[in-house]
């Protein structure tokens, strides 16, 4: 519990540093491309078009889900996925990759994953902005429910941070963890309702279990805020409580693991 409080303090105290380092990271990542930061949006946009073509146009024949055309339904959910997938993958590698950069300084090491995540979050903000414009053009206008979107974006950030706090530490100790993270993420992606809607296609009890996947909660939350105009946080209050519990649980384990190994990172790298 003490580790948990220390991590939170460290993050809050390093707020300015995280913001600046995230901006530098974006610059470093995109320095060599002519289109620069634009790729952070263009890349997911191309993938979205492909998913729509294969899963929406090809397999489903443009049927509607919950009264929303497939393409919009998918866009709202997948925008969250592009952020969280990259954030977790890169965040998990953060300490292992960047340790040598800060080894000789008194650098708060838990900031390494969080500045990587923050960098990806900037790209996410831009992508969500563009998707909003697409929705407005298609007749889904801004509403009071956009407030809820802020909550769900913050939740995505917190979930990514709580997972990477643990995985970035474990990756340093056992390099194979990175591979496990990659595989688990892929499985979670197809088990969550990001690309396809499973209502009525499976026995009730399997669906209930699949709802425990945190990406289910986030994807549905984005949709409720952008398209369906529902208060998803309240309507599914059990899931809200469950996801908060999950994040806090991960943060507690992650922070104690982080502090346990922090002094010995140099031995493992």
């Amino acid at each position: 519990m003490k580790a948990f409080i220390n991590i939170i303090k460290e993050q809050v105290n390093s707020f300015y540093m995280i913001q600046r380092l995230a901006k530098f990271q974006l610059k470093i990542d995109n320095q060599n491309n002519y289109l620069g930061f634009f790729w952070e949006i263009l890349n997911p946009a191309i993938q979205m078009a492909m998913y729509w073509f294969v899963f929406g146009f090809g397999i489903r024949g443009s049927a509607k889900i919950d009264n929303v055309p497939y393409v919009y339904w998918m866009l709202a959910g997948i925008s969250m996925w592009f952020f969280i997938n990259k954030a977790i993958l890169n965040g998990s590698k953060a300490i292992y990759q960047k340790y040598s950069m800060v080894a000789k300084m008194n650098f708060p090491l838990s900031v390494l994953p969080s500045y990587i995540i923050t960098g990806k979050f900037y790209g996410h903000l831009a992508l969500v902005g563009i998707i909003m414009v697409v929705f407005w053009i298609s007749g889904y206008y801004p509403s009071i429910y956009y407030i809820q979107l802020i909550y769900f974006m913050a939740m995505s950030y917190l979930l990514a941070f709580s997972i990477t706090l643990l995985t970035s530490t474990l990756t340093v100790v056992v390099r194979d963890v990175q591979m496990i993270v990659q595989s688990v993420l892929q499985a979670m992606f197809f088990l969550s309702p990001i690309l396809w809607d499973r209502t009525g296609k499976m026995p009730e009890w399997i669906q209930e279990i699949l709802r425990l996947n945190p990406f289910h909660y986030l994807a549905e939350g984005y949709r409720a805020s952008l398209l369906k105009n529902e208060w998803y946080i309240v309507a599914e209050w059990q899931l809200t409580l469950y996801n908060w519990g999950l994040i806090i649980f991960l943060l507690i384990i992650g922070s104690s693991a982080h502090y346990k190994f922090r002094n010995r990172f140099s031995d493992f790298i």
Binding site: Y16, M17, R20, L21, F24, K27, I28, Q31, N32, S100, M101, V102, A103, K104, M105, N106, F107, P108
Partner: peptide, 30 residues
């Protein structure tokens, strides 16, 4: 404090950007 000359410099960034970058890593305030 360890004087680490080459640690914390990034090749992609300019000199002036690197000053801010490395100072951030060293934990300096704005």
């Amino acid at each position: 404090n360890v004087i680490a000359i080459n640690a914390g410099l990034n090749n992609q960034l300019t000199g002036i950007e690197n000053i801010e970058f490395k100072c951030l890593l060293m934990g300096y305030s704005k």
